[in-house]
Structures are given as C-alpha cells and as structure tokens.
C-alpha cells in the first residue's frame, strides 16, 4: 500500500499551475492557427482597399494591364485562370478516377495473381504477397507525382512537353484551324502545355481522395451486386461509383481549388499574354501567374492593384475549397451512417 502511495499521489500546487498554464497555451496556439486564415484575409483586404476605392468593380471587367498609363483590369486573367483549371480538371478527373478505380477494385492484384498462378507460384511464401504489394507500390508511385515540386514540372514542361506537342498542335492548326479551339499556332508557351502539366499535378489529389471513397464503399453492396450476376463493370458503374459519388465530387472540387491557385507551372508555361482566347495554343495568363510575374518588380503605387488581384484569387479559391471540404465532410459522415 505504501509503495502505491509513493508512485501515485495528487499533483502538487505548482504542477497544477503549470498544467493550467500549459492548457491555456495550447488553446491560445490553436486560436492563433485558426486566426491565421482570418489574418491573411484581413491583411490582403486591407492592402487592397486603396485600389478597390480607385478602380472599383470595373477592375474585374477591364482588359488592359498597363502600369505606365495606370490602367488595370484582370478580366483576361480571371478567364485564363478558370479556363486552364477547367480543362485541366477534365483531363485530371478522367485519368484520376480511372486510376482510383484501377487501384481500388483489385485489377492489378488479380493480374499479378494470374501471372503467378500460370507459373504455379501463387502460394509461394514471398511471391505470394506480390499481388497486394504491387497495388500498394503503384499507389505510392501515383502519390509520388504530388511530391515533385511544381517548379520542376514547369521546367519539364518547358523543355519536354512544349517541343513534344508543338508539331502536332501546328498540324491541327493547319488542318482544322477553322475550329476556334485550334485557332492559333503554338509558338512556345500556351494554354495546352499549361493544362497538361496542371492536369498531372492535380491527378494525385483526385486519385487519393477518390480511392478513399471507393475503398470505403461497404463490401455488402459489392457482394450483393456480384451475387445478382452483375459483371464487374456493371457493379462498378451501377453500384460502387454512385455510392462513392459524393467523395469523388469532393475530390474533384478540391482539385479544382488546387488548380486555380497553382502558380509556378503556369507562370512558366502559360505565356503571360494579356488576352482572352478559346484557342488551346494561344498564350494566356492567370491570376496567380500575374502575381508571380509582377510582384517582384512592383512599384509601391502598383502594390495595391496586385493586392486587389490577390483578393480576387483568394475569394475564388476560398469559395471552391470551402464547398469541397463541406462535401467531403458530408460524404464521410454519410458513409459512417451507412455502415
């Protein structure tokens, strides 16, 4: 009994003081982290106020950007941001969801198993684990795509993608130039290279979140569909995808937010031309690229205008991100209820 008393005793007064202080410290730091979001918004808004007063809402509809005459407008940038992100989302979603299905429905494990079975090695102590290992390996490889810094993608796009696609693009322009999409030639940086690289960059996000949604579809549903004689793809298209639809939608919207805010790859590949065009081969500009190119050498009086542009970007991405997070939260809540 005395031994226990020596080990366990009520905390002393000083320990209680330290405890209270530490708890308040943690609470304070948590406040600080959540305030950070508010602080960022306030700071950008505060610096943008003079420009908002001077240019008003016409700033959003203006199409010239000329520091010498003091004329500023960001309509081409808004258009470019939405256009490139949307196109990248189209490509990224189709490939990302395909990869998520491939990685969650056991295609690879089955293929590897069949190969092993052909050699009679499916129960080998080491090789027998290969089917599961291969799937995890492939998943990690896709996630590795996200680890490469965006500036490296920009460099790669500049020296690999642009030379690679330029002949095909100019051929399309020559033959099908009457279609607005192919209306100009690709002389260097332009919308298409930027979209390709952007799609590669958002693909891991879409695959990772969609795969989570697909994996957490209750196994009962799958079994029931197979039990009724559905083929694998009938099951996937009619049962699994609709069940995971919310999670996938959340993934797509979050990826859209990423694409809207992505800076470096676009600043290097989109061409920084202040024009509105639907052509895939024409140079364009985006809000983030505008900020990246103009901030470093901005004169003091132009900083307000750039802050205004930053505020617009902030508003668009915040809106998209909040909607994506809410959808994902509802999706996971719905799935927990379904189990």
């Amino acid at each position: 009994m005395s031994d226990i008393n020596q080990i366990s005793r009520p905390p002393t007064h000083s320990q209680q003081v330290v405890d209270t202080a530490f708890r308040w410290l943690c609470c304070g730091f948590a406040c600080l982290s959540v305030l950070m979001v508010a602080l960022i918004m306030l700071e950008i808004a505060k610096d943008a106020v003079p420009a908002i007063r001077q240019y008003g809402p016409g700033f959003l509809a203006g199409t010239t950007w000329d520091p010498n005459t003091g004329q500023f407008g960001i309509l081409p940038e808004i258009w470019g941001t939405l256009y490139t992100s949307f196109l990248a989302l189209l490509i990224g979603t189709s490939f990302g969801v395909a990869a998520a299905i491939f990685l969650s429905e056991g295609f690879l494990a089955q293929a590897v198993f069949q190969i092993l079975k052909a050699f009679g090695l499916q129960f080998h102590p080491v090789l027998g684990k290969l089917p599961d290992r291969a799937e995890v390996l492939l998943k990690n490889l896709i996630e590795l795509l996200a680890a490469i810094p965006s500036v490296v993608y920009g460099l790669w796009g500049l020296f690999v993608i642009i030379p690679l696609i330029r002949p095909a693009c100019n051929w399309l322009n020559l033959k099908l130039g009457w279609i607005p999409l192919f209306g100009t030639t690709l002389t260097g940086p332009g919308v298409l290279p930027a979209v390709i690289v952007l799609a590669i960059m958002i693909l891991p996000t879409i695959t990772a979140i969609s795969r989570n949604a697909l994996v957490s579809v209750p196994p009962k549903l799958r079994m029931a569909a197979y039990g009724m004689g559905a083929t694998r793809w009938e099951t996937i298209l009619a049962v699994i995808l609709p069940t995971a639809a919310r999670g996938i939608a959340g993934a797509v919207i979050l990826a859209f937010g990423r694409a809207l805010g992505e800076t470096m790859a676009l600043a290097m590949l989109v061409g920084n031309a202040n024009r509105i065009s639907v052509s895939l081969f024409s140079p364009a500009n985006t809000l983030a690229a505008l900020l990246a190119n103009n901030f470093p050498e901005a004169a003091k009086k132009d900083v307000g205008v750039l802050m205004y542009a930053a505020l617009v970007l902030l508003a668009i991405t915040l809106f998209v991100n909040i909607i994506g997070s809410i959808i994902l939260q509802k999706a996971s809540a719905g799935q927990e209820g379904g189990k």
Binding site: I44, T263, L291, A292, L306, T317
Partner: peptide
C-alpha cells in the same frame, strides 16, 4: 483544412 488547399502564392502575398 482550408489552409491545406490555400494557394501558396497567397502566403507569399501575406
């Protein structure tokens, strides 16, 4: 969660 998807350039602007 919102900060995770925050455009990195806006951190620079801040």
């Amino acid at each position: 969660k919102i900060l995770t998807g925050f455009p990195s350039i806006l951190a620079g602007v801040f």
